[in-house]
């Protein structure tokens, strides 16, 4: 799928209805692997997809409130800031502003 740069960000290829509230999923944007999520409260967020502890795939983990949980060892990151919320990781991941434009999910890289 061609990734399109639109004036205000990158199209993720996801439509707003593609993601179930309270879940995260993996999406590739401009060669970067992201963990993109939609909270139960309807807020979108995206962080780098790779856990800084041992490379776990965050987009295959669980989302609870704003916390993304790595499926490997249970490390948790804030979906909106990338901050570590639970060990074992100690280094944060990068976070990307995410929003819906029209029906498209767009991230700022």
């Amino acid at each position: 799928m061609a990734v399109e740069r639109i004036p205000s960000g990158f199209l993720t290829g996801l439509r707003a209805g593609d993601v179930t509230p309270g879940t995260v999923q993996v999406v590739e944007v401009d060669g970067r692997s992201l963990c993109i999520g939609l909270t139960e409260d309807g807020e979108w967020g995206a962080i780098d997809n790779v856990c800084t502890h041992d490379g776990g795939v965050l987009g295959e983990g669980e989302l609870d409130d704003n916390a993304v949980e790595c499926p490997r060892h249970g490390g948790r990151f804030d979906l909106f800031t990338g901050r570590v919320l639970a060990l074992p990781p100690v280094r944060p991941v990068r976070a990307y502003e995410t929003r819906v434009e029209g029906d498209d999910v767009v991230v700022e890289l």
């Binding site: 409130d65 060892h73 570590v84 919320l85 639970a86 060990l87 074992p88 100690v90």
Partner: peptide
Amino acid sequence: YNRPPLSKELLRGDVGLELIAAEPASW
């Protein structure tokens, strides 16, 4: 709380209980 960090990160450094909590207090 999660016990795995007790013998690792928690012994090596000054890590607060909130970073090893199984769920945050608000949960």
